[in-house]
Design a protein around this nucleic acid. Structure first.
Length: 584
RNA sequence: UGCCCGAUGGUGUAAUGGCAACACGUCUGACUCUGGAUCAGAAGAGUUUGGGUUCGAGUCCCAAUCGGGCAGCCA
């Protein structure tokens, strides 16, 4: 045992670049050896899988290095921020399995301190009150290749700046009349150093501070300073903030006292194939009704994944597997699904459910008889026990589990062929009944009574095993089958033909099946309960479904389907043969 | 003809100057009362390109190319 543990430790996983920085800082006893991270969402939308990566990173690092993680809402722009988002963000983080241990902070908690910091900058001659219009500022900023021009108000005396800034705070001026700007370098090649705006006037009630303030700090003025106030040591953000880092450091160098400094480190945001990740675009889909809200099961939001049936453990595992680096990436959905299946396979209760039912009559089974058969709840976990499944003369099987003219390698039911009904009997197809349009309405079979439980005493084998539901006992439910939201791997990639990312939407991302039949075991299912429908996939009871009415299931993910792959290949085969013949 | 960041199998991540590794995906095969799971195996990159330093470079240096970011009183 001890050896094994040693070996496990010996296989130490390599560190990602942030862990390397942290361990280096630790070895130098920087900031007294403290590790303190933060997760800083702006409450202007729901969290998505990309945020999940960041949450797992920040909380994970703190866990690993015996540190702490704060939750901090970056609520400096009352124009876009709302309480509903704050509530959803907190719920999502908890659901994911992380806890900020009461350290729930808001940038708005620090408005007073931030104001003092701003005055400090003014007194040092490092900030000035500017009265250019937005257009004037824009025009004087220059371009990435040309330097900007200095504001005519740049050399306003300190006392005047202080007076004006105080009066801005007192609400003496209309929006846009004045703004506080840092005095850095209008010819800097870094646009963010060209006298960036630090404070703007906004006569607008804030969700938390109400009418107390009418000036609000900009992101750069707030973020690093909040990190500093909270004692954050490693401030992790995505790559687009890299160019802000010189400003982050500049502000702190003029504001902070002592040796302690938070350090900003950037990493690449996560991108998933066949979906979009920007909050703006997700909001658009919500607002134009493309999806059924932020938590639509097709959305890459945490609440969407939750409603779809994803587990917190699977998302955490995924976040671990995608790794941390600085390069752009588009991660294959298959990786997410792999984490999911791995988790669900171990945990999910198995159940039999027929999604597209066709009736099978077992002609030699007594008319009014029925019986209970033993079924395993989860072959991966014996402790989950067994259940009884009712069997009778008429059952449903999956329509596509039968073919009148079966192609090669089709192991399921066909005329004259014998298959196993899972946990029940061997049956042999004797006849097929069709309606006027040629659709199969009934399959007539005989069963072998000696094969009860699923094995024949003579030891003969069958190639296929089908799931089934006793017609008389079946519980009808609705099943919503989801597919990828977009048809292209990178929906953001648009051209003249597809000007908007929504042109890449998948028109068949939702397919509703109204008439699915489940075994009676399902009758006590509650919202968010998860099941494996054997041979079909993982399904969960919709979060908002009323279990006293018809149950609604969301298909979380299919099982890996080898037959689907074979069938696809066979579909392509005939073409090849035709071509060959042509060539001859 | 600005500044910053990046470039390693199909995808993602490692290799920290010394045999390019792991995961997902793909393909075989075994096993199987889920065409699932599991197990065994295989294919697949010589690290964007060109120079340089070095006994030795994916790793260090220079240049080019390509991709991304930066010109909100958004974050």
């Amino acid at each position: 045992m001890a050896n094994n543990e040693k070996n496990e430790e010996g296989k130490k996983k390599s560190l990602n670049f942030i862990e390397q920085i942290i361990e280096e800082d630790l070895s130098k006893n920087k900031n007294g050896g403290r590790i303190h991270t933060r997760f800083p969402p702006e409450p202007n939308g729901f969290l998505h899988i990309g945020h999940a990566k960041s949450i797992c990173l920040n909380f994970g690092l703190a866990g690993k290095y015996n540190g702490k993680t704060n939750l901090r809402f970056d609520d400096t722009n009352p124009l876009k921020e709302e309480q509903v988002y704050i509530d959803s963000i907190k719920e999502d983080i908890h659901w994911l399995g992380f806890d900020w241990e009461g350290r729930e902070y808001y940038a708005s908690d620090y408005f007073e301190r931030l104001y003092e910091f701003a005055e400090k900058l003014i007194k040092q001659g490092k900030a000035f009150v500017c009265e250019m219009t937005p257009d004037e500022i824009k025009n004087s900023r220059g371009t990435p290749t040309e330097p900007g021009k200095e504001s005519p108000y740049r050399d306003r005396p300190v006392e005047e700046n202080l007076d004006l800034f105080r009066r801005m705070k007192e609400g003496e001026f209309p929006e846009g009349r004045y703004q506080l700007r840092a005095k850095i370098d209008m010819s800097s090649p870094n646009m963010h150093l060209r006298d960036p705006v630090l404070y703007r006037i906004r006569h607008m009630a804030h969700p938390r501070t109400g009418d107390e303030w009418c000036i609000y700090p900009m992101y750069d003025m707030a973020h690093g300073q909040c990190d500093y106030i909270e004692g954050i040591t490693h401030s992790l953000c995505t790559m687009e903030f890299e160019v802000h880092r010189p400003l982050y450091d500049w502000l702190l160098d003029h504001i902070a006292e002592g040796d302690y400094r938070p350090r900003q480190i950037e990493f690449a945001r996560l991108n998933l194939g066949y979906t979009v990740m920007s909050k703006r675009k997700l909001l658009q889909l919500v607002e134009d009704g493309t999806v059924d809200g932020w938590d639509d099961p097709r959305m890459p939001t945490i609440s969407g994944l939750r409603r779809r049936g994803y587990t917190p453990a699977s998302i955490r595992d995924f976040s671990e597997r995608v790794g941390i680096a600085k390069r752009d990436n588009i991660i294959d959905m298959a990786l997410l699904e792999n984490s999911l299946r791995e988790d669900l396979n171990k945990k999910a209760q198995r159940v039999m459910g027929v999604l597209d039912p066709v009736k099978v009559v077992i002609t030699n089974y007594p008319e009014n008889e029925e019986e209970e058969l033993d079924a395993v709840n989860n072959p991966e976990d014996e402790s989950m026990g067994k259940r009884e499944v009712p069997f009778s003369r008429e059952i449903f099987i999956e329509r596509n589990d039968f073919m009148e003219e079966p192609p090669k390698k089709f192991f399921r039911l066909a005329p004259g062929r014998e298959v196993r009904l899972r946990y029940a009997y061997f049956i042999t197809c004797e006849d097929v009944v069709k309606d006027a349009s040629g659709e199969i309405t009934e399959i007539r079979c005989t069963y072998d009574p000696s094969s009860r439980g699923g094995q024949s005493p003579d030891g003969r084998k069958v190639k296929g095993t089908l799931h089934w539901v006793s017609a008389k006992h079946a519980i009808p439910v609705e099943v919503r089958q989801y597919d990828r939201l977009f048809m292209t791997e990178d929906p953001d990639k648009v051209d003249e033909e597809r000007k908007d990312f929504r042109a890449n939407l998948n028109p068949d991302s939702l397919h509703i099946l109204e008439n699915c039949m489940l075994e009676p075991f399902i009758k006590d299912a509650k919202p968010e309960d998860k099941f494996q429908f054997e041979r079909k996939g993982y399904f969960c009871v919709d979060r908002y479904c009323d279990p006293h009415k018809k149950l609604v299931f969301n298909r979380t993910v299919t099982l890996k389907d080898t037959w689907a792959k074979i069938a696809k290949q066979q579909k392509q085969q005939p073409k090849k043969q035709k071509n060959k013949q042509k060539n001859k």
